[in-house]
Design a protein around this nucleic acid. Structure first.
Length: 268
DNA sequence: GTTGCGTCCTGGACGC
DNA sequence: TGCGTCCAGGACGCAA
């Protein structure tokens, strides 16, 4: 499932292929979620950016192409083979004959075209928090944001409001590193400092490994990420904690599987 | 405004 | 072997 490190890895590889290119043709799967792909025919791509898990391409007509990869979305250059991908949801043909494809098995992804900076139709992006690896992500605001709601800490991280780009994998990993129980509804300053640092660390390390591939995720060049070999809690329920040896446990929080160490992550 | 829940969606795992 | 059921989860809409 593409989270910030996976989307950033794709963005870095996508950028040189798209910058300055003219979109001469487009195709889309017949559902409204992907229909906007065809709206950018005739536009040049000026920049390839990212906010949280959203890829955002600046167009030369004061609009932006916004792509969310959902759970299983993959962007790639068309192989040109005759065998059609049954999960292809959109494709763009560029003026150098490159064909960029968006494949999404579970159709949780989304494509939108909006006036630059106007994200009113994308509620999560419109209210998204600071980029975790930027200077905008500071401990004071993070602490205030986490304690402004009565929801659990993990639920808030997944909401994208306190900080952008965190999904289920990196939420579990960061909370474990920071020794914060996922269900905690209040967090003190020391724990906020630990969580702030842990979020930065797990994301930066995963970007360095080109993301986490559990099943579907591939980089733009079709490679698997390598961070799945370094996960310390996610998907490891029943295995011993790397810190204390206690058996890791899993439970469901907001319909998402949550793995934690009952000894290292005491509920506050 | 906040919170919680249902829905979307498909392939793999598993049990019978 | 074939069938049915369950599970995974990000974003969004809706109701309370």
């Amino acid at each position: 499932m593409p989270e910030l490190p996976e989307v950033e890895t794709i963005r870095r590889q996508l950028e040189p292929a798209l910058i300055g290119r003219l979109v001469v043709d487009a195709w889309t799967f017949g559902t409204p979620k992907f229909a906007a792909a065809c709206d950018i025919i005739g536009a040049h791509i000026d920049a390839v950016g990212r906010r949280g898990k959203y890829l955002i391409c600046d167009l030369d007509d004061d609009r932006q192409l916004v792509i969310h990869l959902g759970m299983t979305g993959v962007l790639r250059i068309s192989s040109g083979t005759a065998e059609r991908d049954p999960h292809l949801r959109a494709s763009w043909t560029l003026d150098d004959s490159t064909v960029v494809e968006f494949s999404d098995t579970r159709r949780f992804g989304r494509i939108a075209v909006v006036p630059t900076g106007n994200y009113r139709t994308l509620a999560t992006l419109n209210a998204i928090g600071p980029e975790p690896l930027s200077d905008d992500f500071n401990v004071v605001d993070f602490h205030r944001s986490l304690n402004s709601s009565n929801r659990s800490i993990k639920t808030q991280l997944l909401s994208q409001r306190p900080v952008a780009g965190i999904g289920n994998i990196y939420a579990d990993e960061a909370l474990w590193r920071a020794r914060v129980h996922p269900s905690s509804r209040r967090i003190g300053r020391p724990a906020t400092h630990r969580l702030h640092a842990a979020i930065r660390d797990v994301l930066a390390e995963s970007i360095g490994r080109r993301g986490t591939t559990l099943r579907d995720y591939r980089t733009f060049s079709g490679d698997r990420g390598a961070n799945q070999n370094s996960l310390q809690v996610y998907g490891r329920s029943g295995e011993p904690c790397d810190k204390c040896g206690t058996e890791l446990r899993a439970f469901t929080l907001d319909a998402r599987t949550t793995t934690y160490c009952p000894r290292c992550q005491k509920r506050s």
